[in-house]
Structure formats: C-alpha cells, structure tokens
Write a protein that binds this DNA or RNA. Structure first.
Lengths: 167, 167
DNA sequence: ACAAACTTTCAATAATTACTGAAAGTTTAG
DNA sequence: CTAAACTTTCAGTAATTATTGAAAGTTTGT
C-alpha cells in the first residue's frame, strides 16, 4: 500500500465512522483530510481531494467549526481562507465527547427526569414506568458525568492507569 | 403529565436517541416499549402501540434479538410469540457497548493498523499520515479496551468510585 | 393431511438526509 | 466606488434509509 492508497483508505474509513460520533460522511472526511495534512487546506483543495461541491464543503466546514475542531486560518497576503483541524487526538476526543453530551445526552436526561417524576397512581404500569426511567436517568446522568470529567481533565484520561484501575 | 403522556414521551425520546447507540428509530422504540412494560408483549401489541406495520415490527424485533437485548418468550398454550427485553440498565449498557465495539470499532482499528503500517518513504506527507493514524489507532484501541473491560465486568462499572477516581 | 394462526420476506414506496450548483452575499485591493 | 476573488445560502435533486403490505413460509391442533 502506497501513500495515496493509504490516504484514501483512511479518509473513507474515517468518513464511514462518522455515524459513531454523530456527524455525516462528508464532515468526517473533511476532518480526516485535514488531520493528516501537513499544511492548512483551502476550500478548493478539499473540494478537489474529496470530489465534493463547493456548497457541501462550505456547509460542512462550518459545522466542523461549530463543533470546535476545525479552525479558519487567514494567511497574510492571501485572499483564500485556509483550514486546519485539532491535531492532538486526546484533545479531539475531549471536544467530541463534550459536544455530543451537550447536543444529545443532556436533552434526554431532561426528558427522563420529567417522565420519571410523574405522580405514582399506584398501578403496576405507572410504577414500572417510574422505576425504569429513573434507572435510565441515573445511568445516563452518571455516564454523562464521566464524560464531563474526562472532557475537562487536563491530563490524559485514556491511560493505562484507568485500565489498570478497572481490573 | 399522566401515564399515557409520559409513556409516549419516553418512547419517542428514546427512539430519537437511537442514533446515539447506532440503531434505528423503530428498533429503539420497540425496546423502549418493552422496557417499561409490566408483561411480555406480542407483535400485535407492539404494532398497535407504535402504529407500525407487521413487517417492520418483525424485522426490528429480529434485530433486537440479534443484538441480544430482546428475548422471545413462548407462553405454553398460546400460539403467539411474546417478547421481553433486558430490564437491568447496567446489563443493557454492557451488551450495547460490546456490540457496538464488535460491529464498528474493531473494523476501524484494523484499517488504522494497516494504514499506519505503510512504508515510510521519508516525505513529510507520509510521515504525518503514519504519525496521525498511529495516534488514532492507539486512542481507539485503548478506548475499545476500556469498553471491553466495562462490558465483561460483573459488578457495576458506572459507580461513584469510578467518578471519584477520575477527580 | 389440512387449515387456521401466526411469522417472515421482500419488492415497491415513502420519508429522510445529503449534495449540487448557481445566484446572492461579502471582503479586499486599487 | 468598483471589480475581482472569494464564501455562503438555499431550492431543487439525488442518494440513502426506513416502512409498508401482501404473498410466501412455518407451526400447531385436529
């Protein structure tokens, strides 16, 4: 496997993994491209490499900036805008975890709290609903707490010591 | 909010959260329905509650069984099949984590390993590709390890002690 | 062996989601 | 102020994914 094959394979695999962290294919591919690039890329560069339209590129770059993992770099004397991504995988993981929590987990926690707080009318059905949504609420909240702890931690959170601790 | 409103809200919220753990809406909703039910439900019951077709119900129940979180219960003397889901949230979390790892993370780790193993021809581009995909490989593998440790652990893995440990 | 009761399959269709490309908008240089 | 160089927006379209429903398949009781 040569450089170009490897690059292609990486970009497309990372793209299809997008679903895992809740973003679309093009978005993930753009990020992947920037992630292995040795220099900032222009919109033109990205369009050409990924064979996607200007509009698509623009919109997905915007989203990546909203997520906080891609930055616009203005090069003095150049009209074009250039883009770079966070290069540190740990930092990347932190940002993604934090964003997903905010966008998806928090709203669910809110609903679980509401639902589990309905009045207990004594029927088995109501009791079960309350019990199960409460359990889900606790689990989700604790998991979310973990994510936040990890996300705000300055030192490496994925370390051998965590693994060791977990037996 | 009364029982029926709460039930509806829970089922639809849990359904839309499906994406978070990589399954579709109907599948998540069926699981949600079983999760708060006090007794096993038949296909008929599910179709009626969720207003979805027989085919859809059948296919999604099958998938839930493939994931290992829904079980077919045959009630003696009854022709119909009845379904139940894992009721313990911790166990549910374990199973889901394990399945997602197997289905999605493992294949990516494999590709990252391949890509990061290309021959270093000395160019900056190749070096960057190797460096970055290696970093991603390590991160992904360690995260996956964590998931597995958690998934095979018999005692509660999401506990206050883990949180405490993490500062 | 037959028929009733049920489940599964799958081609057709609907719903959702992503992508394009050209027009409108913005910024900068002169 | 104007034009060139660039970016953003968004209506239309394409691609993907989910859903239906009816036919085919299976199981069970008599």
């Amino acid at each position: 496997m040569n450089y170009n094959e490897a690059k292609l394979k990486f970009v497309s695999t990372w793209g299809s993994l997008g679903t895992l962290w809740g973003i679309n294919k093009a978005m993930a591919q753009i990020q992947a491209l920037l992630f292995i690039s040795t220099k900032p890329l222009s919109m033109e560069d990205i369009m050409e490499e990924l064979k996607i339209s200007r509009g698509n590129t623009s919109m997905n770059l915007r989203q990546l900036m909203d997520w906080g993992i891609v930055t616009k770099n203005i090069i003095p004397g150049e009209r074009k805008e250039y883009f770079t991504t966070e290069k540190d995988v740990q930092e990347l993981a932190r940002v993604i975890a934090k964003e997903r929590s905010r966008r998806e987990i928090q709203p669910v926690i809110k609903v679980l709290k509401e639902v589990s707080a309905i009045e207990d009318d004594g029927t088995a059905e109501t009791r079960e609903l309350i019990k199960q949504t409460k359990a889900l609420h606790d689990l989700t909240e604790t998991a979310d707490d973990m994510i936040h702890k990890m996300a705000t931690q300055k030192q490496n959170w994925i370390t051998k010591s965590v693994l060791k601790f977990m037996k």
